[in-house]
Design a protein around this nucleic acid. Structure first.
Lengths: 329, 329
DNA sequence: CCGAGTGATGTTTACGTTAACATTGGTGCT
DNA sequence: AGCACCAATGTTAACGTAAACATCACTCGG
């Protein structure tokens, strides 16, 4: 910076003013400084700036994995909106909680160069991994129950589930079977709860849920069991991938979808419209979730009036070809 | 830091030594300092540290989208390995190249707080978006042709394709049709080239390729065309999602897979083993790609002996149920 | 028993930036 | 003309840290 100042024949403070876009620099001076910057290839040092300003203009994103559609698409949206606000995104993968991994993450968390953190995982998993979020750092939680410690942004899992189950009941199905997600997942838990409640509210029999782990393979295994279940004409899968596994299992056992069994998924991943048959599913707006996260976090960082505790992004049923009225008895 | 030093009755330099793990601090002093840190909730300021050390211990990842399986899994692997080396990951999404987006990215790139950059996109797209990588910053490129400007890490697309095509020819198919990826994609281009070369090397007819955009939907459209093609008994899709679309199109037209038509995909996404039928595909080791990227980049950052220009991660064919000998004529 | 060497700790300084305050020259008003 | 004010620029200091160097108290060998 000093070199630029010398070359442009001004003080370094003026260079700083140009580089931060301060208004009170006369145009001619500004041009000189810009020319000098260009010539010397000057690039501001963001560490020094961060040190002086006390802010990093960076948001940390803590997550367990990027492998699920929901996570990667949420992160992508977060990155996009954050960039628009001039914030960078730092990814903090919380690896398998080996002693080693935990310690590593713990160390990093403490000295993390971030102004705020978005947590895309179950808060209680963070707790049990002995990960303490650094005090004084703003936090927004996605897809979990923060127990009003932090603001939460999430899709309306319960309503989406209700729509899915009602859709099947309205088609005339006696009841709806369920392939649930893993027990650790709060989202999975809420979908299972909402499924049960909707059935109970309609006075229907609640069959025992089958538990998967989000993977298509686990959906396939559940499907093998359900294919042998005579009364089963409608299944609600907690995500699209498990629905894919269901489709295969039913296909292999000669049970037609939607002729004999109807299936609804959750997520509306892009592939789901190309399943055989195209999957009726619940659409989640991950981009909106990402946007709301960034919005809420920045509001906190800027000390603007607090948003309400939980932001719910609406979901909507996307009817496709995997659902139909039950076969006549 | 000064407060900690005062409380522990030592100099701030000793606190610094404790916090960086410097060896020459006697155990009793160390414990006192740690206790003082604990009590005051001291956390080192990484901006100050970065300013002093001249390094950020951060790697930037430039990409176009996280929506493709390959990208998100590569990023996940990069994040994991980088964390293990004590490096954080900053995500730099290059949004749609509106004038606005480009300018934003350009600004960010210049003052980015990173020691090195991994580019997961076509280098020529960066060029055409007027994104200049900051000079002096180390770069590694994935999945593109860097024209020996930068080291490249990639999966062995050509060999994977060769294996796929040979597999089909060896089953007895006359020739292999192809659903290609988008023209901008270097990976897609290489797969198409390798497909053509393998056919030519075997003296077979090279049918005109159909071009998709990686999406299942585009695979479906290609499949509609190919289903009407009488001589078509084997198709090589440039990725698994387009293969999924193919499966649906062929299914809807009553052309059995693998009875009448064989299909091979590329990527081996987790879902592909649950397609109907389970897809024969080419496995890519994204985790290994991520590991090699981080390795190569850190070597550059640390000024260690340069790795060779291009690192090729091997691919392998995963035979499943979507391929079989052609039907008798 | 003394000097050299060693290990633990303290002191000083600089990393690059920007806020706060100081200075300068000009403009407009009475 | 003289004064107050303002806009443009310069000067000073501080952000929190760690390297380099300085100091001090030991230990050990002859």
């Amino acid at each position: 910076m000093a070199d630029v100042a010398r070359l442009a024949g001004v003080s370094s403070q003026t260079v700083s003013r140009v580089s931060t876009g301060h208004p009170s620099v006369v145009e001619s001076t500004r041009q000189q400084v810009l020319a000098a910057m260009q010539e010397l290839g000057y690039r501001p040092n963001s560490a020094a700036r961060a040190l002086k300003l006390g802010e990093f203009r960076t948001i940390g994103v803590i997550l367990f994995t990027l492998a699920t559609t929901g996570n990667s698409r949420t992160v992508e949206a977060i990155a996009g909106y954050a960039a628009r606000e001039g914030y960078a995104i730092t990814l903090i993968p919380v690896a398998v909680p080996t002693q080693d991994g935990v310690l590593g993450a713990f160390t990093r968390l403490g000295e993390l160069a971030v102004d705020g953190i978005i947590v895309i995982m179950e808060v209680h998993l963070l707790d049990s991994a002995n990960l303490t979020l650094p005090p004084g750092v703003q936090v927004v939680v996605v897809d979990s129950d923060a127990g009003d410690r932090y603001p939460v942004v999430d899709t309306d899992q319960a309503d989406g589930t209700r729509q899915a189950v009602r859709h099947l009941l309205d088609l005339g199905h006696e009841t709806v079977w369920h392939v649930a997600g893993p027990a650790e997942s709060f989202a999975a838990e809420r979908r299972t709860q909402a499924w049960r409640r909707t059935l109970l509210a309609a006075g229907r029999f609640v069959p025992p849920p089958h538990r998967g782990d989000w993977s298509a393979e686990s959906g396939y295994r559940a499907g093998l069991a359900l294919a042998g279940e005579p009364g089963c004409t409608a299944i609600f899968a907690a995500n699209d991938q498990m629905a894919l596994g269901l489709l295969r299992a039913l296909h292999e056992h000669g049970r037609g979808v939607p002729g004999e069994v109807s299936i609804v998924g959750f997520d509306d991943i892009p592939d789901s419209s190309s399943f055989i048959p195209p999957l009726t599913t619940v659409h989640q707006d991950f981009a909106e979730v990402g946007r709301r996260c960034v919005q809420a976090l920045l509001r906190q960082i800027r000390n603007e009036p607090e948003a309400p505790g939980t932001v719910l992004v609406p979901t909507r049923l996307v009817p496709r070809a995997s659902t139909a009225p039950p076969p006549p008895r």
